[in-house]
Amino acid sequence: MIGKISLNKKLAALAILLGLIGILAGSPNESSAGKIDTNQLALEIANQSNIIKPTDLAKSMIDGSNTFRMVDLRNESDFTAGNIEGSENFPVAQINKSDLRRNEKILLYSNSEIETAQAWMLLKSKNYKSVYMLKGGWTGWQREVLGIAEGQTAASGSLFGSKTADETAVAPAPSDGIKLPPSMPAKSGKKKKEGC
């Protein structure tokens, strides 16, 4: 019986000790700790597997298979003037405060490919698993998908609309982008109930 009591006391002491050290952890939610595999990063950069072509993105958006969370890194006024339908605006300075999740497939674009690449590096260093960049950024999207030459205003016309006229799933493209299909293909009608 004595041995049993002392075991309990040992366990209590261990718990207190671990708790005390744990105070130092502060709030691990915001922590960016974790090992980064730089070889893996180098490989990704060398293979260019982290780069997505605007036309590929457009295709996946039309057939509803797009799983990217699209992040527009430009400032707010540029974003409101025109953006890729379905994207969200997190200017580069606020990327640390965004609600992006580490397990999401994230696609970054901006006016500047250098800025995009830096944001990519930043997210990868914070252990975001799948981060991609849009080739050519916003201007690339305009040129290759919307058919707008650089310098022209977005309102001047949309080749993308005519390209997809036969796609019934897609509404006629507005001047600033394409509409997402009305609903994502539902894998299951079941709403996952977590908890008990």
Binding site: S188, G189, K190, K193
Partner: peptide, 15 residues
């Protein structure tokens, strides 16, 4: 809310 598209999918529940 607990029903899947068919019985087997309904029963493929983690809990």
């Amino acid at each position: 809310e607990y029903l899947g598209l068919n019985l087997s999918e309904t029963l493929k529940d983690w809990l």
